[in-house]
Structure formats: C-alpha cells, structure tokens
Computed example of a mutant assay.
Amino acid sequence: MNKELKRVWVPGPVIIGAGPSGLAAGACLKEKGVPSLILERENCLASLWKLKTYDRLRLHLPKKFCELPYMDFPPEFPTYPTKQQFLNYLNDYANMFSIKPIFEEEVRLAEYDSNIGFWFVQTNNFEFVCQWLIVATGENSEPVTPELPQISNFRGRILHTSRYKNGYEFEGEKVLVVGCGNLGMEISLDLCNSGAQALISVRNMVHILPREILGLSTFGLSMWLLKWIPLKLVDLFLLLSSLFILGDTQRFGFKRPKIGPLDIKNTIGKTPVLDVGCLAKIRTGKIKVVPGVKNFTADGAQFIDGRVEEFDSIILATGYRSNVPSWLKEEEFFSKKDGYPITPFPNSWKGNNGLYSVGFTKRGLLGASLDAHKIAEDIAQQWNLNAKYMHLAL
C-alpha cells in the first residue's frame, strides 16, 4: 500500500538541491523579495562536497571565480580555498540569507499538471505544489560506475572516488586509478604522497594545462584573452604555454585532442585537467601511466597494449552524471539521455511552465551564479505582476 503524502502548498518556487547552485538561487530570489523552499535529499548543505569528495580537495579555480551572488570569500582565505573552507563559506552564505532547506526529503517525482498550471513534487514524506520549479541537483548528482571488462574477476578492493577520502588507508599498496580527469590525477597524487604506488589508466585523449601561467590563473587569463581575441587563438596560446611549462605531455601517455581545450569544453563539456603536481610525480616515475584496460584478472589487469600489471586496489575516477531523468517527468527542457537542458548555454536556464535549471552550464560556480540571477529576475517579474494566488503561509 502506498504511503499517503501530506500535501503542502508553496507560495514561491521549490528549489531541488541544497548545493551551491540551490543556495545561489535561493539567495537571489530573496534579494528580489521572493520566498522559496529548498528540498535536499541528504542531511546537510552541499552534500556532494561534504560527503563524496576527498580530504585534500581544493577549488580548481581562484576564489574570485567561485563566489556566489552577493557574498565574497573572506579575504584571509587562500587563492584556492580548501574543501573545509568552501564548506564554511557555504554555511555562512546560508546563514547570511536565512536559507533553511528541508533536509532528508528526496524528490521521487516532479510533474506539471497543465489543467491547473502547477507543479506537483513528491518526496518521501510530502507532495509539494508550486507554480515554479527550479532544478538545482547539478551535473554531478550520481556517481558513474561503468561496466569494465571482467572486473568481477578482481579479488581486491574496488571503490568509486565518491567513497575515497585520503590515501593513508592505501599506504604500501599498488593502486590502479581508472580515469585521467582532474579527479583521477589529483587522487593519484594524493595516493603517491600517502605512500601508495599509483597507476593511472588513460583510455581517452585529454588536455593537461598548468593551473597558472605567468603567475596568473589559467582560467582567469583565458577569460580575459577571450574579450580581445578569438577562441582558437586563445586555445593556441594555452597549448603553447602548456608545452613550455609542462613539456610534451604526450610522451607520458596523455594524447591531446585535435580540438583545443576551450573549444572542446564549449562543444562537448569536457574539462581540461589543471595540473597541481601530478605530472612532476609522473616524470620521476613515482606515478605510472598505463593505457586502457583490456580485461581484469584476479590480481590485476591486462592492458590494451598487452602489458600485465598486478595491484591491490582499484579506484574508479569515472565521474558523475545528472539524475534528473529519473524523477522529472518532462519531455522538452531536460534531455532524457544525459539529464542536461537541451538548449545550450547561455539559454539553458529556462524551460516552459515555470521550469528552470541552475548549475547545468558546464561552467562551474560562475555559470551557476549567472543562472541564479537570471532565474530570480524572471520569477520576480511574475511574482510581482502575475502571481496566481495570495501568499500562503506553509
């Protein structure tokens, strides 16, 4: 027998997700005088950051590119804040705007009723009814664990990066890291610094860039250059700078895509790796690069070039994906294939019937802030002029 859900009318928007994107949307709405209700499936703010990231994580971009609307990072924070500093910033942000999400309410179904013009959002305990629905669950809501050839043969430990905290529990082990994105590279470095021997399995082509060029953030410098010169010339500058600073990364086993790092980010959303020290360990042989896995064995793996390696553990740095298609019953705005808005940036923030998305731009926290401002402005106009009902108290 299905549990009877308590129905709750919400006067303003319902925001799904209490990560940075959801908080930014809530704060921008509050600045416009529009109340909102945030639903969060976990028991804390920014659950991905707090529960599913490794201890040594820092922001990949300088803090000025990661600030949420209306609140700067504390001046004493370093250029690249730590995980805990960022979590403290988000807690202070929620307190500043008196944002109080309803925790441990997982959305299981969200559907628009065209007959009455409202959204019905079902969680484990309630059914919320609202005129506006903001999806802020983000690009990384579910870990991706791909089917790898004969991985069930392996007798050692296997875990996704969402369960990895630090390398000390792997001290003395030989560990295969599957995936060479920012996650895979940083965790390999952490393993190496913790006394483990790390192997990075590289199957796909990847751009590796220095985190800074001439003492400036590579990202920040790129954004400034794009104001003056075409993207392809900026990409050429980045590749030449990378060659000068990092050397030819292809000789280590990292093949570069033919399309430039910014171009590939804009077209398919693939983020370049910003090196924070992993390449130095690869140069000295302390971290080993291996090709893609052909098949796993009880004690290790055979790789596509024929070589065989034994190792104690496998860490899957295979990324995350959106889970929106599993609960949002909507056909026009969000893609059923990948859970992203079908319309690309900069118009990916608004759908039909009061549906919005924040944090799906593939442009990090800066993109989420841009979305939040646009959404708040749009809803505020409707709130002030065309609200369908009086402001009801929950």
Rank of each mutant, 00 (worst) to 15 (best):
T267L: 11
K255G: 15
F254R: 00
G285E: 14
L262S: 02
K258I: 05
N266M: 10
A280I: 00
K258S: 07
K265R: 11
K255M: 11
P261K: 02
V289R: 05
K270V: 03
P272E: 10
L274M: 11
G253P: 12
V276I: 10
K270R: 08
G277Q: 04
G285Q: 05
D275A: 07
K270D: 06
D263E: 14
K288A: 04
K255V: 05
K281A: 12
K255Q: 14
V289I: 15
D275F: 11
K265T: 09
F254M: 07
K270L: 10
K286W: 15
L262R: 00
C278H: 09
K281Y: 15
I264F: 02
R283F: 15
G260R: 00
K281W: 14
K270I: 06
G269L: 02
T271I: 12
L279K: 01
G260L: 01
I282A: 03
R256N: 12
I259A: 09
K281G: 04
G260M: 05
K286C: 07
V273F: 09
G260D: 08
L274K: 02
K281M: 14
T267M: 04
K281E: 15
K255E: 14
L274R: 00
K265F: 13
G260H: 07
T267K: 06
K281C: 11
I264L: 13
V276M: 09
G253L: 06
I282H: 09
T267S: 15
P261G: 03
I287S: 03
G277E: 12
P272D: 11
T284D: 14
I287W: 15
G277C: 03
C278M: 14
K288C: 11
P272V: 01
I268R: 06
T271K: 07
I259H: 02
T284A: 03
L279C: 09
P261Q: 07
I264T: 02
K270M: 04
K286E: 15
T284S: 15
G277K: 01
N266S: 04
P261C: 02
F254P: 03
C278L: 12
V276K: 00
A280P: 03
P261E: 10
G277I: 04
G253S: 09
T271V: 12
P257D: 10
D263L: 03
R283L: 12
T284W: 10
F254D: 02
T284L: 12
P257N: 03
L279G: 02
P261D: 07
G285T: 10
I268L: 04
P257C: 01
T284E: 14
G260N: 07
T271N: 09
T271G: 00
D263Y: 06
T284Q: 13
L262K: 03
G253W: 07
T267D: 13
I268N: 06
P257T: 00
F254W: 13
N266F: 12
L279D: 07
G260I: 00
K255L: 13
T267E: 13
K281N: 13
G260W: 03
L274C: 03
R256P: 10
G253A: 05
V276S: 08
P272R: 00
I268F: 07
L279Q: 03
